Amino acid sequence: MKMCIACGMPMTQIADYPLYDISKNYCKHCANKDGTMKTFDEKLASLTLRYMQSHDMDCAIAKHTAYVILKKLPAWKQK
Rank of each mutant, 00 (worst) to 15 (best):
L70D: 05
L70G: 10
C7V: 07
K38Y: 10
P18A: 03
M3W: 02
C4S: 11
A66K: 09
A6G: 03
R50Y: 05
K33G: 13
E42I: 02
T12G: 10
K28I: 15
Q13T: 12
C27M: 09
M52K: 09
Y17F: 15
K71P: 05
C4A: 12
L73V: 12
D16E: 01
A45T: 04
P10W: 02
T48K: 10
H55A: 12
I61M: 08
D21K: 02
D56K: 13
T36N: 14
L19I: 12
M57R: 06
Y26C: 03
I14T: 15
L19Y: 00
A45W: 00
D56R: 11
P74L: 00
K77I: 08
S54T: 12
D56I: 06
L70S: 08
I5W: 03
R50F: 03
K24S: 08
K63R: 15
I22E: 14
Y51N: 05
V68M: 13
A6R: 01
T65F: 12
K43T: 01
H64Y: 12
Q13N: 06
T12Y: 09
D56H: 10
V68W: 02
C7W: 02
A15I: 13
I5V: 07
T12R: 11
A31V: 11
P74N: 06
K72V: 01
A15Y: 06
A15P: 00
A31S: 15
Q13F: 14
I61A: 07
T36A: 04
M1D: 07
T39R: 10
M1R: 11
P74F: 00
K24G: 07
G35N: 08
S23K: 13
I61H: 03
A45D: 10
A15V: 09
K43N: 03
F40K: 10
M37N: 06
L44P: 06
K28W: 00
P74Y: 00
G35W: 05
A45H: 06
T39A: 11
Y17E: 02
R50N: 09
H29A: 13
D16W: 04
D21I: 00
